[in-house]
Design a binder for these strands. Structure first.
Lengths: 214, 214
DNA sequence: ACTTGCTATATTGTCGACAACTTGGTGTTA
DNA sequence: TAACACCAAGTTGTCGACAATATAGCAAGT
């Protein structure tokens, strides 16, 4: 679903954004009738949107009772990063063998442009750049399941934690070096190393967040 | 959803089984009206079931066109095993630290009962025993996302490949030893080793299947 | 013969109403 | 007072009908 077509598509995305960005607060109940008036669509559309959100683990639903936005907890964030470490590690491994030379060149260029920003004093890691970097490697894995699990599922949840626990990624310059080494490994087609470096990169990230949180 | 409650639950499970067991053939189109008469429920229920199947990657859907059962391909199976290797590896790693002593004892007992069967000449690995072993380790990870990704998503697809490409797991006795070593690593609380052994176990499995397929 | 555009048909998407269920409150009884 | 049964209000689950969209077939024109 690259482009939202049906009303259910649009409602799903709108509702997801409302939740991820915190306009609907974590842990709160989702009333179907209430939402259907808010978005000016029928309950059927709302129900489909909520079903999809449940598949993303953004809401939880009990039969005949209703749906609630997931509650955010330090434990939940840790579990999320464990999955990320596992999946993105594998993505980097696969990317090292499956990315085309051209894609790798593009990735290097992206990294270079990041370097210029760092040099220019702008703190590395506003989120956009970081996300873009990870996106390309995940896509580079060419593995459908990996791509959809991370893009449709994990990443929105990660962002939800970032926004709502209010932590802009703090590890400014070290992360750049880590990215650089990962690209180097991919350039060398060293799958083993690419995976290891990516896993450590995400593990560091997790530890840093964990440290600030507990 | 441990117990199916609503009509949509039951229909979802029934339809999923029909697909996984091959009674509805891979790649075929799913007509909503047709299914609604077959299962004697309204189209709304069918639509919800299909939506859930889409979340599991068992069907693919295009807006205003309809849903098709996924097509099975060697490439698809390989991608599936790549994800399995990644996720179950992490599950084993986490299980090594998160399983209780009691759970580990139960796991050892299960393995012992498998050993007795092997000794008794029944070929190790009818599917049930193998699946049970992996289930316990995945549950032992205590990671909600891992558990649901593997149980709700990957495993049904893996089974679909097994059934429809007609391959009962062939690696009779070697797999038992691999299981034994994994349990030993968990018993020693050696997370690193448990992950590595589990990954190799799944990788071997993949190679064996791949070899038979290509 | 090949393309183009229309139409008929069938399928999916959306809606509003009704049925089934949960929940909180009330009243009765031990 | 505590426990139980029951009722009422509100929510979710299911249904059948209607609207919007895609597809196949036919007709006309080049």
């Amino acid at each position: 679903m690259s482009q939202p077509i049906t009303a259910a598509d649009k409602t799903f995305i709108a509702l997801r954004d409302d939740i991820v960005e915190g306009r609907i607060e974590a842990g709160s109940k989702l009333s179907e009738t209430e939402l259907s008036t808010k978005f000016a669509v029928s309950r059927a559309v709302i129900r489909e949107a909520i079903n999809r959100l449940e598949s993303c683990h953004i809401v939880e639903r009990k039969a005949n009772v209703g749906a609630r936005v997931v509650a955010l907890s330090p434990q939940g964030l840790i579990e999320l990063y464990q999955v990320r470490e596992s999946l993105e590690g594998m993505a980097a491994r696969l990317a090292a063998t499956n990315m085309t030379d051209e894609e790798i060149a593009d990735l290097s260029a992206l990294l270079q442009s990041h370097f210029d920003e760092v040099k220019g004093g702008e703190s590395y890691y506003q989120e956009a750049g970081d996300v873009d970097f990870h996106y390309r490697i995940i896509l580079g894995s060419k593995n459908k399941h990996l791509i959809s699990m991370l893009f449709d599922g994990i990443y929105h949840l990660v962002r939800m934690y970032r926004v709502q626990l209010g932590m802009a990624e703090p590890r400014v310059t070290t992360a750049y070096d880590e990215h650089k080494h990962i690209v180097q490994a991919i350039l060398n087609r060293d799958a083993e190393l690419a995976e290891m470096l990516m896993r450590r990169h995400i593990l560091y990230s997790k530890n840093s967040i964990e440290h600030k949180l507990l």
